[in-house]
Design a protein around this nucleic acid. Sequence first.
DNA 1: AAATCGGGGCG
DNA 2: CGCCCAGATTT
Length: 292
Amino acid sequence: MGRLTSGTDAYRDAVSSALIGWGLAGLRELPWRTTSDPWSILVSEVMLQQTSVSRVLPKYADFIGRFPDPAALAAAPLGEALELWRGLGYPRRCRNLRDAATLICDSHGGVVPSTLGALLALPGVGAYTARAVLAFAHRADVAVVDTNVSRVLSRLDNRSMTARELQETADSLVPRGMGWEWNQMIMDLGARICTARGPMCGRCPLAGTCAWRGLGDDPARSSAGASRPQGRFEGSDRQARGRAMRAVSAAGVPRREVVAAMGVEPERAERLIAALVAEGLMVERGDSVAAP
DNA sequence: AAATCGGGGCG
DNA sequence: CGCCCAGATTT
């Protein structure tokens, strides 16, 4: 039998049954998969934005333990949250999460909203994270499109896809009543089998319905959601910013010490510190710099 | 559409 | 050493 045409009911059913047969038994055991608390889900999803599962694992429980609900995070100084965030990278995510917690307390009675529109209005919450809360906390039949799903779907159809195409295709594939399971499984497939480098097509449950199968140019590389080449980290602004974040403390640190810790020319260090202050990730106190 | 934003781990 | 990671926001 030939490969089924994408977009048809038969295609959807074939993909569904094959993936469900593969995935339900062997899902990775992850702490955010054993809760339906929307706040816990939201925290995990923000942590997982561009940060691998293995790096989030040791941080997640500590953060939830200290900030078990939006009110706890909203009430804490940002600097305290940033301490628990240290090592995850992209600290603006932590600031956004705290701003989101404040908005949740001020406008939603302290309860994480459960509509797509209200979730998208939270700072740091985009198309992926909003739907992840709906699917994983509320078991809604909406599809999440992360880097894994983008890769799997574009390879299945062997073509580069836009963000809109990916979302529409993903939504059309979710089996009714199985939003939670479906999204977890297709992400696991991308993380464990249909990987960015060295995909293991030989043990892929969807190989029979895949138009790519590892042959020829990888359509995932040019699809929306694919990782784009980055500049060198060594010597970058990002590295210097990271060093600055580690150098400051709640008590405050003399400016020159922070500049020295950053390992770049003083003029450049000062410019980066000014940006960090403007972003609310640190504050100036007289001649020193402190955690916010 | 392209740039920016951390940091670590793996092939 | 290059590439990638459960993205979002700004330009």
